[in-house]
Amino acid sequence: MDIDQLQAFLHVANTKSFTRAAEKMNVVQSTITTRIQMLERHIGKELFKRDKRNLDLTSAGRSFLPYAERIVDLSREGTKVLLLEQTYHDQLVIGTTHALWDYVIFEAVNEFIKSNSQISIRMITEHSSFIIRKMIDGLIDLGIVFYPVYHSNIETKPIIEDIFELVAAPNFYLPDYPVTSETLRGLPYIHLNWGGSFSDWIQQIFGNHYLFQLEVDHVSLLLRFLESNQGVGFLPHSIAKRLIHDGTVISIPFVSDTPLPNRYIYLLNRKRSNNIDYLEQLISCIKRSF
């Protein structure tokens, strides 16, 4: 088993195609086929189910996939460590969600790199669950996520208890009656599922199987619809406060018999990191940004 075989396996698993995997690795298709066959021979199990139309992972392939990803990631990180010695003192790998990068964490990292030019920074944008898994594997030094982690090598600290705000464009026509959980249903509401307790709250307000006229899965998309005066939506205060300050959106007073939920944002850092001094500096920048 070697890295080329594992990379071929990952490309085929992701593209569901030997041809596209060969294009991504810049080799001929027969090379991909040979690498997969050698890997299957080494493992002793078939990794893919093949027929004339479809290609998919076998149960053994699905079980092996996360381990192959980790091996390739660790190999890549090991190579980077060697390259760092030529240029930088160290590297910090930071992971968080797209929303927090755009509206909170960017300023903190920008502040940090201005005074630490000898440190290489790698930024990863993913869901909280992905960030947590990579931290457990030792591939991320610092994570900002929406869930606490209980692991012997990871320190978890709540940064802030965030609240949700109902917002709209400054020129949005507001009704002359109070916006409540009941009257919200009569407004053009744009739904972004923030997960956790927010999902439970929305189900209480709208019902379990309510079909929203407009539902998005990205903050930037929600903001584009809000800015084009298409309706109202909920944002965490940590994001909304900056947009309210620069006049992008306004906060709408909202009253509900079922109170809007709060949620914590957590900062995770590896306890045994070698670059602890730089981590502490970066953590201080992030706390200030919140």
Score class of each variant (00 low, 15 high):
residue 82 L to D: 05
residue 82 L to N: 01
residue 83 L to E: 13
residue 83 L to M: 10
residue 85 E to D: 07
residue 85 E to S: 08
residue 85 E to K: 14
residue 86 Q to W: 11
residue 86 Q to V: 05
residue 87 T to G: 00
residue 88 Y to G: 01
residue 88 Y to H: 10
residue 88 Y to R: 04
residue 88 Y to C: 05
residue 88 Y to Q: 01
residue 89 H to D: 09
residue 89 H to M: 06
residue 89 H to S: 08
residue 90 D to N: 09
residue 90 D to F: 06
residue 91 Q to A: 04
residue 91 Q to M: 05
residue 91 Q to I: 01
residue 92 L to D: 03
residue 93 V to W: 12
residue 94 I to F: 13
residue 94 I to R: 07
residue 94 I to E: 06
residue 95 G to Y: 03
residue 95 G to K: 01
residue 97 T to W: 08
residue 97 T to G: 14
residue 97 T to A: 15
residue 97 T to Q: 12
residue 98 H to R: 15
residue 98 H to N: 14
residue 98 H to Q: 14
residue 99 A to G: 06
residue 100 L to Q: 05
residue 101 W to E: 07
residue 102 D to E: 12
residue 103 Y to M: 05
residue 103 Y to I: 03
residue 103 Y to S: 04
residue 104 V to L: 11
residue 104 V to P: 01
residue 105 I to E: 01
residue 106 F to L: 08
residue 106 F to G: 03
residue 108 A to D: 05
residue 111 E to T: 08
residue 112 F to R: 07
residue 113 I to V: 09
residue 114 K to Y: 04
residue 114 K to N: 03
residue 115 S to R: 05
residue 116 N to S: 04
residue 117 S to W: 02
residue 117 S to L: 07
residue 118 Q to D: 06
residue 118 Q to E: 09
residue 119 I to T: 09
residue 119 I to P: 00
residue 120 S to P: 00
residue 121 I to W: 02
residue 121 I to R: 01
residue 122 R to I: 08
residue 123 M to E: 07
residue 123 M to Y: 05
residue 123 M to P: 00
residue 123 M to G: 03
residue 124 I to P: 00
residue 124 I to K: 08
residue 125 T to G: 04
residue 126 E to M: 15
residue 127 H to E: 15
residue 127 H to C: 10
residue 128 S to A: 12
residue 128 S to R: 07
residue 129 S to Y: 13
residue 129 S to Q: 13
residue 130 F to A: 15
residue 130 F to M: 12
residue 131 I to E: 10
residue 132 I to H: 09
residue 132 I to D: 10
residue 133 R to Q: 13
residue 133 R to D: 14
residue 134 K to C: 04
residue 134 K to H: 12
residue 135 M to S: 07
residue 137 D to M: 08
residue 138 G to P: 04
residue 139 L to M: 05
residue 140 I to V: 15
residue 141 D to T: 02
residue 142 L to I: 15
residue 142 L to H: 11
residue 142 L to C: 08
residue 144 I to M: 06
residue 145 V to K: 09
residue 145 V to P: 02
residue 145 V to E: 03
residue 146 F to I: 10
residue 147 Y to W: 12
residue 148 P to D: 10
residue 148 P to T: 12
residue 149 V to L: 15
residue 149 V to P: 09
residue 150 Y to R: 14
